[in-house]
Amino acid sequence: MAVEERAPARATPAAAPRWVHGVLLVVESFWRWYRRNWRATAVSSVLQPLLFLLAFGLGFGSLIATRPGAEAATGGVPYLVWLAPALLAMSTVQSAAFEMTYPVLSGFKWQRVYLGMAATPLTGAQIALGHLVWVAAKMTLTGAVYLVLIAVFGGAASIGVLGSLGAAVLTGAAVAAPVMAFSASREDEGAAFNALFRFVVLPMTLFSGTFFPVAALPAWVQPLAWISPLWHGTELARAAALGTGTAGAVLGNLTYLLALLAVGVWLSVRLFTRRLAP
């Protein structure tokens, strides 16, 4: 058997990359994966929000356009303009929930790519943060595409919708982080994710003031909306797009979302570290 000689080319002595650099290397790896496989997810991440935009913004919107009182509920702007920033936030929350469930469990259990990473200088904290940063970056990217579509259909009131995109990405990240921690704690085959989608994500998308003001709900249900991160995100996104919202309210929404993000990151880092180095 012929034996090829392996050139002992050692250009750089292998050393552990710096902390933030390590996070970015994980992001780079997900980016490379996405570059090759983006078609598989592009449809669901853009087409689905587009369907919501068409069905509710244009279809349902035309139905209520002539109804007295509709303008009052939306603060005087067309329903589509009122709905669009909220849909932006809803789409990031939905993709956050999806991206942080099965893919995370797969990283530990099925494909085990996290285990491959953990054998290199990368730490559990860098892997968790890298994946989260990547998901946030991807939400920004697909959110921007969505925003262009919204503008094309006449849903963008002002340049403030760029702020709505920022609010939507923050909301997505604030949901993504705790969901990531939840997934990292699962040992099963992901059966719990169905419950998460059905009993957390779906009610959250329906009752966070996306399609109708929370004020339209019975008074005793309204506090439930306040614990929903999507409600806070929707308030922020609308405040940016429509110029509504007071400084106090905006500060409250921001604080809630940042706190949720911080708790989620803290839990994820702990759980990743423990699961990757038992």
């Binding site: 750089t12 390590g22 290397l25 994980v26």
Partner: peptide, 8 residues
């Protein structure tokens, strides 16, 4: 990709 994890 694996090589990049080492910061190479």
């Amino acid at each position: 990709i694996y090589g990049r994890y080492f910061g190479l």
